[in-house]
């Protein structure tokens, strides 16, 4: 078993066009998915991020008032999970509810050192 970070990117624009009901439904889908993972003892943590952000560049001397990558590449949240392998973690990632909004899910193993 290793720990993996799922980086969820994009989909914010499509999501913003949702009706409040649809948003509510989407939140519930997330809730369900995370509950399932928790029950399988695969969930270690995870949170959505606010869209705004700042980025430090140039050895930390320069600060810009936005996330480094935006649009399709804007990081919208993360999930920390346990899985047997990169492949099985990727299988889990396929079930991410935000996939409907055409987000991408990057699957990365936590480096031991």
């Amino acid at each position: 078993m290793s720990d993996f970070l799922l980086i969820i990117r994009g989909g914010q624009e499509l999501y913003a066009q949702n009706s409040p009901e649809e948003m509510q439904q989407h939140m519930e889908d997330w809730q369900d998915w995370m509950n399932t993972l928790a029950k399988e003892e695969k969930l270690l943590g995870g949170q959505p991020l606010m869209n705004e952000g700042k980025t430090l560049l140039d050895f930390g001397k320069k600060v810009i008032d936005r996330p480094l990558a935006e649009g399709k590449e804007l990081v919208g949240g993360y999930l920390l999970i346990k899985a047997e392998s990169l492949d099985s973690a990727t299988e889990i990632a396929k079930n991410c509810p935000s996939i409907t909004y055409n987000c991408s899910v990057e699957v990365r193993e936590i480096s031991p050192m």
Binding site: L5, R9, L86, C96, I99, E106, V107, I110, S111
Partner: peptide
């Protein structure tokens, strides 16, 4: 906080395809 391995996979296109690398590479 954690460090990540450089290798990774990314699920794209509404889950229909998987690429064998992180979505953003290099400086990003």
């Amino acid at each position: 906080g954690e460090r990540l391995r450089t290798q990774g996979k990314t699920v794209i296109n509404k889950g229909t395809s998987i690429i064998d690398r992180p979505l953003t590479e290099g400086k990003e």
